[in-house]
Structure formats: structure tokens, C-alpha cells
Amino acid sequence: MSEKTETRSPAPRPPEPATGRLRVLAPPVTGQEFVLLGVIAVVWVLLGLATPAFVSAGSIQPLLGAVAPIALIGIGMTVVIITGGIDVSVGAMIAVCSVIVAKLVLVQAGLGLLVALLIAIVVGGLLGLGNGALIAYGRVHAIIITFGTANIFLWISLRLFNSTTVNNIPDTLASLGNGAAGRTVGVPNSFLVTILLAAVAWVYLRHTAGGRHFYAVGGDPLAAELAGVRVRQRVLVAYVLTGLLTGLASCVVVAQGSNLGQNVGNGKELAVIAAVVIGGTSITGGRGSVLGTVLGALLVQTVASGVTQLGWRSELSDLFVGVAIIIAVGADLIRQRARKR
């Protein structure tokens, strides 16, 4: 083998390793994320000009608070989608975790914040473990299984709700809520936690072997398996992670209101997926970043908040979300096609 190459190609040896170092990592901030940042900035400026109330603290703070649960779950969903999967059960998961937390703090008035958080996160993790185990070891299509488990989770939550809303939830979780207790130097704590966890996830996905393995699994599971990646374990971890984060996000949801309706979490799975794909994560797996997801969630929430503040029908924001998805993904498709040429 080595003889052959020696004899056959002596002269024109391409200087591959010297100049063209193959780029494994995407740039820290990708083109799409720059564009998103720009779009968000433009929308903020325009909204600020149209309705000056938009740029006041009283408007920005609830906006960031509303971004938090979507972006938190989005971190997990990004990882899931990077592995080539999807989780449409997070909406129902929110319902389960939040009703458990709400009832718990209602019954156990003396319960500490950390205990409540811990319970929600553990419950979410268990639900995610169910999804992950079925998908990784049952070897079935993620969207089908999570459609199924979504129904089961919804059933659990409705049984726990017992046909009534949970009212007068005490302020055990106030430090994650919308009140003054939920802010540090004017920024909602829930948003700070989101940023912190997103930063951790960003580093983990970019700069550790475990994080890169998610990309490997999404790019080509067979090749990843042959390269020694424990594919099933990575897939399992992705769904458990989503579950854990959904548990945390549920606490934010509970903290933001004093009542909890049975329809909590309804449609949130699609909002999360929308944020992830607007952020530039490829639904076919192998590509994506947490930063994009946070920006995507921010854009979606900005649009929703802007539409109401302009006095338009709030349902109109869904139209803009749909258009945003088309533009974001469409631009990515066109760029990919251009790169192939």
C-alpha cells in the first residue's frame, strides 16, 4: 500500500495539510445568526419608532420573561434536532411538570424554591427518559413516538388537573416570575438563567467530545457508530436533556402567573420548533447552534409582543412566525444550493 503511493505519485503532491485546514467547527456566530441579530435590531428600532412604549422597561421585561421558557426548551430541542430527531411532546411535558409543581407549592406551602425546581426537573427528566429510551432503543421514528407520548403526557396532566384550574398559587417561585422579586438589575432572572444555560450548552456543543458527538450522530449515525460514538446513548441523552430543561421551563411558566389553566403548554412544542429552525438549526440533523435558537425565540416573541402593542389582532403574529420560518429556512436552502455549485 505505502509502496504503491510512493511509486505512483512522486511529484504533484497537493499541499493539503499546510493551507487548507478543514474546518470542522462552524464559525462562533454564523451568517444566519448575524442576519437574525440584524433583523431583531431592525424590528426593535421600527417598533420603538412606531410605539415608543415598546422600548420601555415595562414592555421589554415581560418580553424577555416570555422568551425564557421557549428558549430554555429550545436549548434541549436544538440538541435533539441536531441528532436528527424531534420532540413534539414538550408541550404536554410542560403541562405535566407545571401542574405537579403548582399543586405541590399549593399543598406544601413551606416548600423551598430549590425543592420545587428539583422535583419539576426530575419529573421532566423522567418523561424525557421515556421518550429517549423508546427512540434510542425501540428504534422508531422520533416524531411518531413523541406524538404518541404527547397524548400520554397530556392524559397524565389532565388527570392531575382533575378538571379544574389551579388557582392562587403561592409565590414560592417568585424569583423566576414577572414581579420585582424575579428581576436582577432589571433583567428577569428567568432570562438570565436561560442565557447562562445557553452559554454552557454552546460551549459544550462546540468544544467537548460529547457535544461534537451529537453532530456526528445527526450527520450520519452509521458513520458515527463506526467511529466509536455511542449513538444510542447520545440520542437518549438528547431527549433526557430536553426533558430536564422542560421541567425547568415549567417552573418559569408556573411562576409567571397565579393561576394555571388546563391548556398550559398547548402548542408550545411548535413554538419551540419554530424558534429552533428560525435559528438556523437544520431539521435533517448535523448542523445547528444554541445561540441561533435563543435569537429565534427572541424574534418570535418580539413579533408577538410587537403585534399586540401595535394594536393588531394577536393572532396575526402567527402569520409573521410562519413567514419568518419560510424566510429563515428558505435563505438557508438557497445558500446551501449556492455552496454546492
Partner: peptide, 14 residues
């Protein structure tokens, strides 16, 4: 999944 998610939002809103 993406295309119909987007149109789901748009049609629902309309």
C-alpha cells in the same frame, strides 16, 4: 415538517 409548520401558523392565523 418545516414547510407545513410554517403554513400551519400562517393559515391558522389567517
Amino acid at each position: 415538517l418545516i414547510a407545513t409548520l410554517a403554513t400551519y401558523y400562517a393559515y391558522k392565523s389567517l
